[in-house]
């Protein structure tokens, strides 16, 4: 009983952290542009598949593959902003939704074209065997996942609160017109936001692939659950996203363990709907942020 519970907790936290990374990707783009990027989940999928390609076909060492995959996906984010979103900068919300959905379909289709329909695997980052804690199995990869995501969150808060570019991006989020007036190149900040968000999504994809494999079809679900975490944590709030991601992951894992494994995918979505319907400002969102969005 206790062992099972511990095992479910470990599994839940692992996927939860991944959802949190996806949520952070949403937050970055949302913060700067107020666009919800429906292709966010596809970045995660691309990251995993790129890494699998770099390791499996080019035989790069796994750490090099990690960075190569992050950079490659960052380029995809760059292309998406530069060639698609920028063209549609005067479009209405409805068009922007359709456009990001279209990009997500295109990315998914291209991934299927390039990598086929079979799931791809990636060797774990360290070769050491699993660690046993009170009867529960802890893969060393899980520690890597926690480590990488902690690093990402810390680096991001430094970036946004200490660095020049980060502050400029926050200014765009707050008031794009005022930001432009003080000389911040808003378009470049938007470009940066897309690159950053694609890279973080890709990092999440690479670190989860050794545990859960990756195929072309995973993006949409990861994206939806990540959005659930983003809303639950309050859109734009990084720490909220982290906490909400873990809550969703745990809920999903306990549901799979104790109730029904078939419905585990529905749990996060039900949380998403409940959050949207009853508390759209999220658990940790501020009143001001809510006013901006509605």
């Amino acid at each position: 009983m206790g062992t099972d519970f511990l095992q479910y907790t470990i599994t839940g936290l692992t996927v939860g952290v991944i959802y949190a990374m996806v949520a952070i990707g949403y937050n970055i783009i949302y913060n700067v542009t107020e666009i919800i990027n429906f292709a966010q989940g596809e970045f995660v999928m691309l990251g995993g598949l790129f890494a699998a390609f770099f390791v499996g076909t080019l035989h790069l060492p796994v750490f090099l593959a990690f960075f190569a995959a992050v950079i490659a996906t960052g380029c995809v984010g760059f292309a998406m902003e530069r060639f698609v979103i920028r063209r549609a900068r005067n479009a209405g919300v409805l068009s922007l939704i359709i456009i990001t959905i279209a990009v997500s379909i295109l990315l998914k289709g291209s991934a299927m074209l390039g990598y086929g329909k079979d799931p791809h695997c990636l060797p774990a980052f360290s070769t050491r065997g699993p660690i046993m804690i009170a009867g529960a199995v802890l893969q060393p990869q899980v520690l890597w996942i926690f480590g990488v995501s902690a690093l990402v969150v810390i680096a991001l808060s430094f970036f946004f609160h200490r660095s020049f570019y980060g502050k400029a991006m926050l200014a765009c989020a707050d008031n794009p017109i005022a930001a432009r007036m003080v000389g911040i190149p808003v378009r470049q900040m938007v470009l940066l936001a897309f690159i950053l968000s694609a890279s973080i999504g890709a990092a999440a994809g690479v670190i989860i692939t050794p545990i859960s494999l990756m195929d072309y079809d995973r993006g949409a679900m990861l994206g939806l659950k990540g959005f659930g975490a983003a809303v639950l944590g309050g859109l734009g709030n990084f720490y909220g996203a982290l906490l909400a991601g873990c809550v969703l992951g745990l809920a999903e894992s306990y549901c799979a363990g104790y109730l029904s494994s078939g419905y585990k995918d529905a749990v996060a979505l039900i949380f998403l709907l409940l959050a949207l319907f009853f508390k759209p400002e999220g658990l940790f969102g501020s009143e001001a942020a809510t006013l901006k969005k509605f």
Partner: peptide, 9 residues
């Protein structure tokens, strides 16, 4: 809800 939120919901 509006726009993006409605689409996601």
């Amino acid at each position: 809800l509006k726009g993006h939120y409605l689409a996601m919901a």
